[in-house]
Design a binder for these strands. Structure first.
Lengths: 232, 232
DNA sequence: GCGACTTTGTGAAGTTACGCACAAGCGATC
DNA sequence: GATCGCTTGTGCGTAACTTCACAAAGTCGC
């Protein structure tokens, strides 16, 4: 997939779990926990302990046998691996509820993402301040991206404006895009896009709920059969 | 994992993709496209065509060789499989920006999720109307869940209130929980929880951006070496 | 109706991820 | 400083997922 690979490649599945570990470990650190075993971390993350150890081993071996891992050092290593050891400048396009929620979402600044600007095309929203950040007009995007060397853009617009937002981001020089709008946006080669659809997880959830319900119904039907087997 | 399995089990990886297909197909339908090939759908979803065909085959074989798939029928089948052929009643806990964004998010109602209530513990927020829904006090939760037979609860509270929200949801009788707060919540056995951390995808994105940057730096270093090897 | 062309459905091969099981290593205790 | 208990790091078998490749099955034009 990726044409570039430095010395040790970390599996995608592991990369997807690192943020979870990082969050749990940071939490533990705040609670004064300075050492943790793979077993404990596995319980917190609801995964297998061997998986935790293998995941962590991709970053080098930082645990002590018989003891566990130093939480602070682990946090440092994961942050470094994820590129969170320096600030990332990001911009948010769309100052609706979602844009505002993202701006106010502590998880971003907490992890080293600095919101350099939130933009909207609607003059009504421009100049309003949300979460300490003044909303700017979309026309100022290029300037801000260039000046603050922004490399990541977040699309929080309605679906119909998402492609336009993506185009403007690309033109401004952003190289990675996080798309919260429920559409697939087209971008030139070399630009990374990741999509987050807030309703996808809900649908996965209802799929399982659905199965649970039908399974229960079938059990009832079978039980009924074995008693008065008239409905063969 | 799941103790129940009806006739044909659909792989998790496929279930996770079905919502994407559904959304793309619905979009196509709106554009007047009535037939689609696995190849076209694969391009839209940015995946392999064989994967699309295999995914769709788990729901039974609804395509026509030499022609493709009937978009409308496919939409119907996916919806049925995901349990979207009937309405799901959901409640949202937390009326902050995220809760409001979710309430106003078209993707929910569009797919058959009916927001039966949005709740907050803060009296300041209670009785305000967001997205056509009046914010209620958390104390009314049990009543609404019972009356409207709600089975899915969404947590959109700050991290520190998430566990309390989960407890209240479980007590009220909800059996599936979608958690947007960046913490892991504990629930009794038999309750499904899925977590969505808005910053996880951002971290995966910056991981790749990071790698891209270091790969480029290494290339420059190598190029520099071969030209004027003074910076060994 | 027949041949050329298209696209599905799916065995089989290939790839990635998971988890067991255990040797290796570290700390503590006497 | 040897023994014991605990936890890491990882080789390896297995499972899940992806992709290839092609026969089967359909359409279309003549």
């Amino acid at each position: 997939m990726s044409p570039h690979r430095s010395r040790r490649r970390i599996p995608d599945a592991t990369v997807a779990r690192l943020p979870i570990y990082l969050q749990l470990l940071t939490e533990q650190l705040e609670h004064g926990v300075s050492n943790i075993s793979s077993d404990e971390l596995a319980t917190l993350a609801a995964v297998n302990a061997a998986k935790v150890r293998k995941d962590l081993s991709y970053m080098g071996s930082y645990g002590t046998r018989g003891v566990g891992y130093d939480v602070e050092y682990l946090v440092y290593q994961i942050r470094r691996e994820l590129g969170l050891d320096h600030e990332w400048s990001i911009v948010i396009l769309g100052a609706g509820h979602l844009g505002q929620a993202l701006t106010g979402y502590g998880g971003f600044s907490e992890r080293g993402y600095s919101i350099e600007g939130i933009f909207d095309i609607d003059d009504q929203k421009v100049d309003v301040t949300v979460g300490g950040v003044r909303v700017r007009h979309l026309d100022e995007l290029n300037q801000v991206v260039a000046q603050r060397s922004v490399s990541i853009g977040v699309i929080a617009t309605p679906a119909e404006s998402a492609q336009d937002a993506a185009d403007r981001l690309v033109k401004s020089g952003v190289t990675s895009i996080l798309n919260f709008a429920p559409v697939v946006v087209n971008v030139p080669l070399g630009i990374s896009v990741r999509r987050v659809d807030l309703s996808v997880e809900l649908q996965i959830l209802s799929y399982h709920e659905q199965r649970r319900l039908t399974a229960a119904a079938q059990l009832r039907a079978v039980a009924g059969d074995s008693v008065g087997n008239s409905t063969a």
